[in-house]
């Protein structure tokens, strides 16, 4: 059995009802600021073959669109830095911290 099988075959048991990602990230608090602290230049993404951000962003904020672009939402972001580290394409991601006092607020971690 591979790891994937483990995940698949045990997916929906009594103890582990499938949980949506929205529920998961909904457990974390974010004080969203009106300014987007990360900006993604979709025109660069259109020529990106690897698209590392989609699988790597722990907040699942990079969503491929049907026309080959990337839809990015900044609101529920951990401010972790994974995206700018994995993305090899100059200019695709403009990354800053949100205005002081805003963004993710951890409590139990």
């Amino acid at each position: 059995m591979t790891w994937k099988d483990v995940v698949e075959t045990t997916r929906e048991t009594e103890q582990w009802p499938e949980r949506s990602f929205e529920d998961l990230i909904g457990s974390t608090r974010f004080d969203v600021h009106e300014r987007a602290h990360i900006v993604v230049d979709d025109t660069v993404c259109r020529d990106c073959p690897s698209r590392e951000c989609i699988v790597a962003c722990p907040a699942k904020l990079f969503v491929p669109t049907s026309d080959g672009g990337i839809l990015f939402n900044y609101e529920q972001c951990f401010e972790c830095g994974t995206c700018y580290l994995v993305c090899n394409n100059e200019g695709a991601i403009t990354w800053t911290y949100p205005e002081g006092g805003h963004g993710v607020v951890f409590k139990l971690t």
Partner: peptide, 24 residues
């Protein structure tokens, strides 16, 4: 997947997610 591993599942079973987090 980790939470469903036979060695881990019995330890974490029934735990409700109170917070999800990430950091580099």
């Amino acid at each position: 997947g980790l939470k469903r591993h036979p060695a881990i599942a019995p330890l974490v079973e029934g735990g409700d997610v109170a917070e999800y987090s990430a950091h580099v």
